[in-house]
């Protein structure tokens, strides 16, 4: 009898343990479930739908719909073929590539020295930090509008042309080897860098500058956070060993900032690739298609070219952009995951 009772108790304990173990296994999924659901509905499904729709012909007024297979116009990979064969795509790719190279470089080149200067300022560091962060609070569209005033061709209105006027350089044009410059025409035809295989339109540079002005605050914040993690003992030791200010920055501070540099670079690159709003308000992709970036080409194909439905083509561009972004975001993701481990 006793043994039967004990055996029954032991069975109950095993069942309870199994139940607890089962609950322990299930509970995390219950917590993560809603998040997975949100991710699936608002991220995964749109991504899958975009990829799927890139294999069909459709327009925004008669969109591709999963529930209407009778209306599908399957075109295979021809949207990708047409995209890659299109001069518009390569023009936009070149302009996006200019953004990809110039924007992160300028963000790093402006925000890193600023962050270090603020860090080494004995007084008023938080004031200076705020000054450089303020433009970040302005939307990029607004930043673009502000800078169109600065670029105004009338010397009585535009700051830059007023400066040119002061030095008698209004409408000055000159050529330096492959570089052609037209001073004062900041957002129309400021110049071209003729590379032989491609022409780099400098108007892109004059749209990137306001974007950097607005975005540099992000770099200042990130680098300032990184600078707080530089150990004081290490700095003191370097000073005792006779390191000067430059050596201190080069050999002690910079290595500590490597993760911050990766974060700022990758975020800048992603930002550069998906840029749209500041181009839209400053030049609208023009003049001609000089500043049309990939996101703007995509937008044009969906919302402007209504009588030649190109939704599938724009979906193909979106997929190509996403693949590229995932590839270049890998270092950041790896660094983040490594940090978590």
């Amino acid at each position: 009898m006793t043994s039967t009772v004990e055996s029954s108790r032991s069975g109950d304990r095993r069942a309870a343990r199994a139940h607890r173990s089962h609950r322990a296994a299930v509970t995390p999924y219950l917590f993560i479930g809603p998040l997975v659901l949100v991710f699936a509905v608002f991220y995964l499904w749109p991504a899958i739908a975009t990829i799927a729709s890139s294999f069909f012909r459709w327009g925004i007024l008669n969109p591709w719909q999963t529930q209407s297979p009778a209306d599908w116009q399957f075109v295979g990979i021809s949207n990708y073929g047409d995209t890659l064969a299109s001069g518009d795509f390569w023009n936009a790719t070149l302009n996006s590539a200019i953004w990809l190279v110039v924007f992160p470089v300028l963000v790093l080149a402006s925000s890193l020295p600023l962050a270090i200067l603020i860090w080494s300022t004995p007084r008023g560091a938080s004031f200076f930090r705020s000054v450089f962060i303020v433009p970040m609070t302005i939307s990029l569209a607004a930043a673009g509008v502000i800078w169109t005033f600065i670029y105004n061709p009338d010397p009585n209105k535009g700051l830059l042309n007023a400066a040119l006027h002061l030095f008698g350089l209004d409408n000055a044009s000159f050529t330096l080897g492959p570089l052609e410059i037209h001073a004062g025409h900041w957002l129309s035809n400021p110049g071209v860098l003729h590379l032989g295989f491609a022409d780099i339109r400098l108007v892109n540079l004059f749209i990137i500058i306001p974007a950097v002005w607005a975005f540099a605050g992000f770099g200042v914040i990130t680098f300032s956070a990184g600078l707080t993690s530089v150990p004081d003992e290490l700095l003191d030791a370097a000073r005792v060993d006779g390191a000067g200010r430059i050596q201190l920055i080069r050999h002690v501070v910079m290595p500590s900032l490597r993760p911050s540099v990766i974060v700022v670079t990758v975020i800048s690159v992603i930002f550069a690739l998906r840029t749209f709003d500041i181009v839209f308000v400053t030049t609208g992709g023009g003049p001609a298609q000089d500043s049309e970036v990939l996101a703007m080409l995509l937008w044009n194909q969906v919302f402007q070219f209504l009588n030649s439905p190109q939704g599938g083509l724009s979906a193909a561009i979106a997929v190509l952009m996403s693949v590229f972004m995932i590839v270049i975001a890998m270092p950041y993701l790896r660094a983040t995951l490594k940090g978590n481990k």
Partner: peptide, 8 residues
């Protein structure tokens, strides 16, 4: 036309 037509 003025040279700054595209800027105006």
């Amino acid at each position: 036309w003025p040279s700054n037509a595209l800027d105006t």
